[in-house]
Simulated scan of single mutants.
Amino acid sequence: METAQAAANEEEKSSAGDKYETTRAMMQIERDKAAGQLEEGLKLKRVAGSIIPQINNSQIGLGSLVMTNTVHFYIGISAGKVEIGNQSFLTVSAQAPIALTLLKLKQGDSFMFNKLKLSISEIA
Rank of each mutant, 00 (worst) to 15 (best):
L105F: 05
I120D: 01
G49C: 08
T101D: 11
S119N: 13
K81Q: 14
N57D: 10
M67G: 03
Y20V: 05
L102E: 01
Q87V: 02
A48I: 01
F113R: 00
S93A: 13
E39K: 10
G41L: 06
Q28L: 07
I77A: 10
A16G: 02
E30Q: 12
K117V: 07
G17T: 09
L90V: 12
S14W: 06
K81F: 08
D109S: 14
S14K: 06
L42T: 01
V71W: 14
A34I: 10
E83M: 01
N56S: 10
D18V: 08
I55Y: 11
S50F: 08
Y20R: 05
T101V: 07
L42Q: 12
S64T: 13
V92Y: 07
L116M: 11
V92S: 09
P97V: 00
R31Q: 12
A99R: 01
L105P: 03
H72T: 15
Q87I: 01
V71A: 09
E39L: 06
L42Y: 07
M27F: 15
K106S: 13
K19R: 08
F111K: 01
L116N: 10
K13G: 05
A79C: 08
M1T: 15
Q28I: 05
G41E: 12
Q37N: 08
Q54A: 15
K43V: 00
E40Q: 02
G108L: 04
G63P: 05
Q54E: 12
T23S: 10
R24S: 03
G17N: 13
G17P: 11
R24M: 03
Q37F: 03
Y20A: 13
G63Q: 02
Y74G: 09
F113T: 00
Y20M: 08
K81I: 14
S15V: 04
I55E: 15
V92T: 10
R24F: 01
E2L: 13
A99I: 04
G108A: 07
T68W: 13
S58A: 10
N114M: 00
I98Q: 11
E21V: 03
S121R: 07
K106C: 07
K106H: 13
L90M: 12
N69S: 07
D109Q: 06
L116W: 08
Q87Y: 06
E12C: 00
E30H: 10
Q54G: 14
L38D: 09
E21K: 09
R46K: 15
S93H: 11
S15E: 14
I75K: 03
G36M: 09
F113Q: 00
M26I: 03
Q54M: 13
S78V: 04
S119C: 06
P97H: 02
Q59R: 08
H72M: 06
G17Y: 07
L38C: 00
N69Q: 03
N57R: 08
G108T: 04
L62H: 05
S64A: 14
A34P: 00
R24I: 01
M26V: 03
E12S: 02
K43I: 00
I51E: 04
L90Y: 11
Q59H: 07
N86F: 01
G108V: 04
G80F: 01
N69V: 08
V92A: 08
L65T: 14
T22H: 09
A96D: 15
Q28S: 06
I75N: 03
G61P: 06
G49Q: 09
F73P: 10
L105C: 05
T101Q: 11
K19F: 11
G41Q: 09
Q28M: 06
